[in-house]
């Protein structure tokens, strides 16, 4: 049953539009409003602030930002291995490994000689985003 005190609490917290109130209390609030002469004034007292809050529209989406974020998304995983495929035979795989090691050695040597490389490595290791996800796990947000 809705009391006068609870009706005022709800209006003070959620505003003058009962549709924005917690679902569990909307029906009793509507019944209280219909049966209580002074209840409308409680809602009206919140209406102007609701209007001000509602007039503050959402910021416009930046299309360039949207495209940048889309470009950063992971690419589809390619399935390269097919049973019986000649192009990924054992010999081919071994050759690819040797080539990879040779290229990797040359690239890393050049990279490590570059003073800017240290800055890049420091920057990438300085940021640890795990704190955010620890918080999420603690709240059970990602629980299965």
């Amino acid at each position: 049953m809705m009391t006068s005190e609870r009706f005022q609490e709800l209006a003070g917290a959620y505003g003058g539009d009962i549709r924005r109130w917690p679902g569990a209390e909307r029906v009793t609030a509507q019944a209280y409003l219909a049966a209580t002469p002074g209840a409308r004034a409680v809602l009206d007292a919140e209406a102007q602030l609701d209007a001000f809050l509602g007039a503050s529209g959402d910021p416009r989406t930046n299309d360039l930002l949207l495209e940048r974020i889309v470009r950063q998304a992971p690419r589809p995983t390619l399935v390269m291995w097919r049973r019986g495929s000649a192009w990924m035979s054992g010999a081919g795989l071994a050759a690819a490994c040797v080539l990879g090691i040779m290229v990797g050695a040359n690239v890393s040597a050049g990279f490590l000689e570059d003073p800017a490389a240290d800055t890049v490595v420091e920057a990438s290791t300085a940021f640890d985003g795990t704190d955010y996800f620890d918080d999420v796990d603690a709240l059970g947000e990602n629980a299965g």
Binding site: L66, I69, A73, R75
Partner: peptide
């Protein structure tokens, strides 16, 4: 899965 259509739809829905 890296599905481009899903990625675009997701960003379009959630970025604002």
């Amino acid at each position: 899965r890296g599905d481009p259509a899903s990625v675009r739809a997701f960003v379009t829905a959630k970025l604002p």
